Each structure stands twice: as structure tokens, then as C-alpha cells.
Simulated assay, not measured.
Amino acid sequence: MSPAGRVFAVVAFLEAATWAGLLLGMYLKYVSGTTDVGVWLFGRLHGAAFLLYVAVAVVAGARLRWPLWALLVAVLAAIPPLLTLPVEYVFRRKGLLSAPPLRATPQAAK
């Protein structure tokens, strides 16, 4: 896996983890009515993780030369809860998180 692919994988996990924390916080606030600290804390953390994930997806897509469909899937995966994890898994299996092959340059005729 390339360095950009590793950063994408870590940030995808971070984005999903903050989504899970926010969902737990919303349960505690709106269903059980016990506290709103989870929404306060994870709302902020998830907002930052969401923005970081979108930025990292765009940079990784450019560095790893993803096709447009892959970039769109990666960016849109941040919207539904926890979707960044399966997207990262599929991208890893398809080799999209590895460095793209180097292009052969034609040798100058001597």
C-alpha cells in the first residue's frame, strides 16, 4: 500500500469511528434522554473527521490516479454512516490504495 493509501485507510477508519460515536451520542440524547455530551463531543470530532476525509480522498485520488468513479464513490461514502469502512476495504482489494504503475518513457534514439 502506498503512503497516500495508508493515510486514506486511517482517515476512513477515523471518519467511521467518529460516526459511530455520534450515533451513540444521538441515542443517549434523543432515545434514553440521559446526556447530550456525546452529541456535543462527537459532533465536533465527526465534523472535523468528515472534512479531513474528503480532503484526503481528493488528494489520494489525485496521487494514486483513481478513475473518476472511484473518487466520487470515496467522497460520497462519507455521507451515510460507516460507509467509509467497506469502501476502504473494496479499494484495498481492487488495488486502488497501491501506488500506480510507473509509465514507461520512450528512450531517445541514439
Rank of each mutant, 00 (worst) to 15 (best):
98 S>L: 06
61 G>N: 09
84 T>L: 01
13 F>I: 11
85 L>S: 06
42 F>W: 12
51 L>A: 14
37 V>N: 03
52 L>Q: 01
14 L>H: 01
44 R>D: 07
13 F>N: 05
66 W>D: 08
27 Y>R: 10
96 L>C: 12
89 Y>N: 04
25 G>R: 04
88 E>A: 15
22 L>H: 11
76 L>W: 12
10 V>E: 01
75 V>Q: 05
18 T>P: 15
59 V>G: 08
40 W>I: 05
34 T>S: 09
87 V>G: 00
66 W>I: 10
71 L>G: 13
64 L>M: 09
57 A>L: 04
39 V>S: 05
26 M>F: 05
70 A>R: 13
97 L>G: 12
58 V>C: 14
110 K>T: 06
53 Y>A: 05
91 F>L: 11
63 R>M: 10
44 R>A: 11
90 V>D: 11
80 P>W: 07
109 A>K: 13
55 A>F: 04
81 P>Y: 06
6 R>G: 14
105 T>K: 11
92 R>Y: 11
69 W>E: 13
46 H>K: 02
101 P>H: 01
36 D>R: 03
64 L>S: 11
104 A>L: 07
102 L>E: 05
49 A>Q: 09
100 P>C: 04
48 A>I: 15
53 Y>W: 09
11 V>Y: 04
12 A>Y: 03
58 V>R: 06
3 P>T: 13
98 S>V: 06
107 Q>M: 13
18 T>G: 14
35 T>D: 14
58 V>K: 02
4 A>E: 03
56 V>K: 00
66 W>K: 07
1 M>L: 04
26 M>K: 13
53 Y>F: 15
46 H>Q: 05
72 L>K: 02
85 L>Y: 02
88 E>G: 10
76 L>F: 14
73 V>A: 14
21 G>C: 02
55 A>V: 06
70 A>D: 13
3 P>R: 14
34 T>L: 07
96 L>P: 10
110 K>P: 13
46 H>F: 00
4 A>P: 00
87 V>R: 04
75 V>H: 05
7 V>C: 01
94 K>W: 11
52 L>D: 01
47 G>S: 10
4 A>N: 01
34 T>N: 07
